[in-house]
Write a protein that binds this DNA or RNA. Structure first.
Length: 1077
RNA sequence: GCCCAUGUGGCGGAAUUGGUAGACGCAGCAGACUCAAAAUCUGCCGUUCGCAAGGGCGUGAAGGUUCGAUUCCUUUCGUGGGCACCA
């Protein structure tokens, strides 16, 4: 054979490899002791109906190259493949066509495998897993039961069997109940308490509910508040759901990132998702709402503590007779309504007698004698003020002397204070509800101008005043109609509604209006925020929009135009924090908050528990039976709980999943139930009709959270993965996949791994040692321009002369940017008579980069390319496109270059006319140098996933060997071993041509010998003032004095020196010389 | 709005820790072989001035550090991706 007939070669070797089970991977046994292992894993695909496009194999080729490389390096390599085959698209397709998801899934997997096979991957298909196979999801269900039967121990920070917790409750109780109480609870009460600790638990959560379709929709399926299909309204509805308590693992998921090799950006994404923040939770007391007009003025205001009132009343009357001079002076100026606000003298508030009180403004004035300088007295005064503050009053103190000597200033201060405190109407007594807010910036507490509650906040209806109720109701209706995605998408739109209620700032008693707004989310923190417009841009925009006055606490740092979230400002208008740097004030404020008992330091996570049930058919059924509101798990020996066959895939009653429609499946007979449960329920408790199976199914990520373990022991019927197998294969050494799974899948599988580790089911607590993210391959779309109303098509640069419509055209009938007009006429019947307005005799298409998708006609089928150029060319070309981790548009036109390279390689072995030309001659030093240079480069590039540069190194190597006319087995054999990870078929073929048996994968990787790379001289670049002017060849061992001499003698250097002496000469051995003038 | 990534010829991209910018490939041009085409081979190929020798300018833009910057720092602009408006 003289020609490179890749079709014949590739087909033959694929058959041989299969027949001889070349890719079979064995777990170590007693007879076959363990080699060092290496585990290379691809994210397994969802087998969609569309089949593979050229974007899919990118990561698979990279992992295949790496696997083969590691195998040649002497490792036992596990490199499996399988299918994530449960999911929504198959179910949608079933609803539309009536075909069972199992059937379409099976068919799609067949297509995927056929396509993958054409690329020549080294998967051991005997280890294939499919998440939708009962033999697989049996173990998914089993692991769910492990989660259900475990809790997170906050002391040991790990998962433990729930039986440990039950034992503790039975013997010790907790701070909430005693052991005796626990033992007295009903079974149901006990189960409800336990449910709050289980790692897989059931609770109520909001879902997108579409009444018209009678079904729950995914965020994807909701557009502008209506269902994507049919346009029916969608609202939020609370339903019973399963969750995984991933929040318990938040800290360990963060810490775990320190010990894995993920890219920094990937770790950053996970950190942001977990979103740990430190701050404080604190309480804003509500001020009672204004009394109806008239009533308030008639009813006497009772501010005193009822119990101590009789004593204090007399005391206060007594006191009024013995006033100080200062008090009298002040009373003359404040008495009655002189300051447009009623002042009271010697007024009792709670247990204190206050000198002067403005009750409407909740402002208290105290006038003190000199004995208040006493330290003990001061601390008493402070705590008294703090208490009064807390219940909503502001206290200002003056000294007697101050009042006597400068009455006007004192009065001015009081006036000022009355003005800044908005009029505050007071009902009966103080206290009542409080609003808990979470803030990361307690230092800005004096800049709070309003509070905002999430619309879903439980206090909203309670605090709304009658005047505002109608508006609030309207707003709530509006919010209910909006999906989470919309609330996120329309950032610019500011909406909100005033509740009519007020709270007071715990530090200065300032009255603060309470609003609701959709920008505050119920699920994060406490669902309520304190808004500081001068420091937070969203609060600022809100204040501006609703004309809420803004308090500036950061002086010049705030310009009135926009908020400034700095922590470097010095606080102003901030009471006891005045003059402090904000970053220092955070701690001070938290301490004060804790001291006053109005709040506490709080670590918060943005991450929420993961919703784990779907009201769908095509997923794992939950191994759970509901008995009178108690979730009773199946026993392990009853698994798998197989997904029953259904006729229709529509939703069940009340939005339940399709399974709810199968009565005989849902209703479990009492005998069967009793036989299966761990709960020793007695016949008396039985309510036969209420024993029903859970009808929702598990989400897509259930099966994918642990599949990497199943590959280690895929056929095991006793356990999900034998401990000896998971101990041997251990962590995935390299995991390859796209960034779209950065947070979802990767966090869930990390959590499951940690749970399994805690329960001692496996021996490691991070699943993936190293993660490589492949970039996305984008489509490169082509456009033609149809002149409006005609069947004429105008070439790209002439289109502006016409009124045209842009139309996507199939990339496969465009050569580069030139349209094949004949193919175009054949492409669709409507274009059969198309006419063209050409430029330079060609039709040039427009180009745009967008997502690769069938609807843009920009997908390229890998099979088309492997048929035309062969798998080896295709593999190398995908790698040659650019760095694996980088996103790039697909462009087929460069593939010829790679194909030429392989043909050129072939011609090192065969000549068209002479036939075989390889020989057994002894290699020259020059040839060995080429070889070892290549070994060095390929080895390090492969290890670093720099496959694009490796391909170019192969090209350079073959070019150089061709120039040297090297056809020597001694060189070529090793070159083939380097090449086999990249181009396995041609390498195997030529390796056998050289007389070898077996498979080249069992050959050993070439060993670099540095001696062939030693150079004696080096072409040094010579720069003058950093600009390259010439090069001079010098001995590699030459030292500075010698080099300087040679350089200064050089004609070109002398020309630039113009007779001057250089300032200095910089010489870096082996690198360069720079002459500084 | 926030977070991450990225910007180098006509194009994909290359350039150890700062040390010869544009490797390798595509496209293009010229030539050899051929009746012709394909295949293959040889040469040219950032831009600009120049007959040439040889210069000037060039890694999104503007500054800075340095003997020397695609690489480090500051500011700024563009593009792509992600997100749960995260208090």
């Amino acid at each position: 054979m003289m020609e490179y007939d890749f079709r014949k070669i590739e087909e033959r070797w694929r058959e041989q490899w299969k027949e001889k089970k070349v890719y079979k991977v064995n777990n170590p046994t007693a007879e076959q002791p363990a080699k060092p292992k290496f585990y290379v894993l691809d994210m397994f695909p969802y087998p969609s109906g569309a089949g593979l496009h050229v974007g899919h194999p990118l990561g698979y080729i990279a992992s295949d190259i790496y696997s083969r490389f590691k195998r040649l390096k002497g490792f036992n390599v596990l490199h499996p493949m399988g299918f994530d085959s449960f999911g929504l698209p198959a179910e949608q397709y079933a609803i539309e066509t009536g075909q069972h998801p199992a059937t379409t899934t099976e068919k799609n997997i067949g297509t995927f495998k056929a396509q993958l096979d054409k690329i020549g991957f080294c998967y051991d298909w005997e280890r294939e897993v499919r998440t939708s196979d009962a033999s697989y999801y049996k173990w998914t269900q089993c692991l769910f039961l492990q989660l259900f039967n475990s809790y997170f121990c906050n002391t040991q920070k790990k998962a433990r069997p729930i039986s440990d917790l039950i034992r503790k409750y039975e013997t010790q109780g907790t701070k909430h109940f005693t052991a005796a109480q626990w033992n007295g609870y009903t079974k149901k009460e006990q189960q409800e308490i336990l449910m709050k600790r289980r790692l897989a638990f059931s609770s109520y959560g909001e879902v997108n509910w579409c009444e018209a379709l009678g079904t729950v929709l995914a965020n994807d399926e909701v557009v502008n508040g209506v269902s994507e299909r049919g346009g029916h309204p969608v609202i939020k509805k609370k339903m019973r759901q399963w969750y995984l308590r991933i929040t318990a693992y938040a800290d360990r998921l963060l810490e775990g990132l320190e010990k894995v090799a993920f890219s920094e950006s990937m770790k950053e994404m996970q950190r942001n998702w977990i979103g740990k923040s430190e701050g404080a939770e604190l309480e804003f007391r509500l001020t009672p709402n204004p009394s109806p007009a008239g009533e308030g003025s008639k009813t006497p205001i009772q501010t005193a503590n009822k119990d101590s009132w009789p004593i204090l009343k007399d005391l206060s009357r007594e006191n009024r007779k013995s006033n100080t001079l200062a008090e009298d002076i002040l009373w003359q100026r404040l008495g009655g309504n002189q300051l447009d606000s009623k002042a009271r003298r010697r007024h009792v508030i709670e247990n204190f007698i206050i000198d002067f009180a403005f009750l409407n403004e909740r402002l208290l004035i105290e006038v003190d004698g000199d004995y208040h300088n006493d330290e003990e007295q001061q601390s008493y005064d402070d705590s008294r003020s703090a208490y009064l503050n807390q219940i909503g009053y502001k206290v200002i103190r003056f000294r007697n002397r101050e009042v006597e000597e400068d009455t006007d200033t004192v009065i001015a201060k009081i006036k000022e204070e009355l003005k800044t405190r908005a009029s505050l109407s007071l009902g009966r007594g103080v206290g009542g509800e409080a609003i808990n807010v979470y803030t990361t910036r307690p230092d800005t507490i004096f800049g709070v101008d309003f509070l905002v509650l999430a619309p879903e906040h439980e206090l909203v209806s309670k605090i709304t005043t009658d005047d505002q109720r109608a508006k609030v109701e309207d707003y709530l209706t509006y919010v209910k109609s909006r999906s989470d995605r919309e609330r996120m998408a329309e950032v610019k739109q500011i909406t909100g509604c005033f509740t009519g209620a007020y709270a007071m700032n715990p530090f200065d008693g300032k009255q603060i209006p309470i609003w609701i707004a959709e920008y505050v989310l119920a699920g994060y923190g406490t669902g309520a925020i304190m808004a500081v417009p001068c420091g937070d841009q969203r609060d600022f925009a809100f204040a501006n929009h609703f004309k809420i006055p803004i308090t500036n606490i950061i002086g010049d740092f705030y310009n009135g135009e926009e908020a400034n979230p700095t922590k470097d400002a010095t606080l102003q208008n901030s009471g006891f924090l005045n003059g402090m740097l904000m970053k220092d004030a955070i701690g001070v404020a938290i301490s004060k908050i804790e001291e006053l008992g109005i709040g506490k330091r709080k670590v918060n996570y943005r991450m929420r528990d993961a919703g784990f049930s779907r009201q769908r058919y095509w997923g794992e059924p939950f191994p759970v039976i509901w008995e009178d509101g108690i979730a009773v798990p199946l026993n392990e020996n009853e698994l798998p709980l197989e997904l029953p066959f259904v006729e229709k895939y529509g939703p069940g009653p009340e939005g339940e999943g399709p399974l709810a429609n199968i009565e005989e499946w849902v209703n479990v007979s009492w005998e069967d139930f009793l036989r299966s449960t761990w709960v020793d329920l007695t016949e008396e408790n039985a309510h036969l009709e209420s024993v029903k199976r859970e009808t929702s199914t598990m989400p897509g990520y259930a099966g994918s959270s642990w599949y990497f373990l199943r590959y280690m022991d895929p056929k095991n019927n006793e356990t999900f993965c034998d401990r000896s197998a998971s101990d041997y294969w251990n962590q995935v050494d390299v995991y390859i996949g796209g960034t779209e799974h950065a947070v979802g899948h990767l966090l869930y599988s990390r959590m499951w791994t940690k749970v399994m580790y805690d329960l001692n089911l496996i021996g490691f607590d991070e699943p993936f040692k190293r993660l490589v993210n492949q970039g996305m391959i984008q489509g490169s779309s082509r456009f033609v321009y149809r002149v409006a109303g005609t069947n004429k098509f105008v070439s790209y640069s002439l289109k502006n002369n016409y009124e045209v419509n842009d139309l996507h055209v199939d990339v496969n009938i465009v050569d580069g940017i030139e349209l094949n007009v004949d193919s175009f006429r054949q492409w669709k019947s409507e274009y059969a008579n198309a006419e063209f307005i050409l430029e330079d005799g060609k039709y040039i298409c427009g180009v745009e980069t967008e997502k690769m998708s069938k609807r843009y006609f920009n997908t390229v089928d890998p099979v088309m390319l492997t048929d035309k150029y062969g798998a080896d060319t295709f593999r190398m070309y995908e790698m040659f496109l650019g760095p694996v981790e980088q996103s790039k548009p697909w462009d087929t036109k460069g593939i010829e270059g790679v194909h030429r390279f392989l043909r050129k390689l072939w011609r090192l072995f065969f000549d068209e006319l002479k036939g075989k030309i390889w020989n057994n001659d002894k290699a020259t030093d020059a040839e060995l140098k080429v070889l070892h240079k290549t070994i060095k480069k390929i080895e390090s590039d492969t290890e670093n996933f720099s496959f694009n540069t490796a391909v170019s190194a192969f090209m350079i190597s073959v070019n150089e060997l061709a120039d040297l006319k090297c056809h020597k087995k001694e060189i070529l054999e090793q070159l083939l071993t380097l090449l086999v990870p990249y181009a396995p078929h041609i390498a195997e073929e030529l390796w056998h041509e050289l007389g070898n048996e077996g498979t080249i994968l069992d050959a050993s990787y070439p060993v670099l010998e540095e001696k062939y790379l030693v150079e004696t001289s080096k072409e040094y670049p010579i720069s003058i003032n950093g600009k390259l002017r010439t090069t001079i060849s010098m001995d590699v061992n030459a030292l500075q004095p010698e080099v300087e001499k040679i350089v200064l003698e050089n004609d070109i250097v002398q020309k630039w020196l113009e007779g001057n002496r250089p300032k200095k000469i910089i010489f870096v051995k082996g690198k360069m010389v720079n002459v500084v003038l």
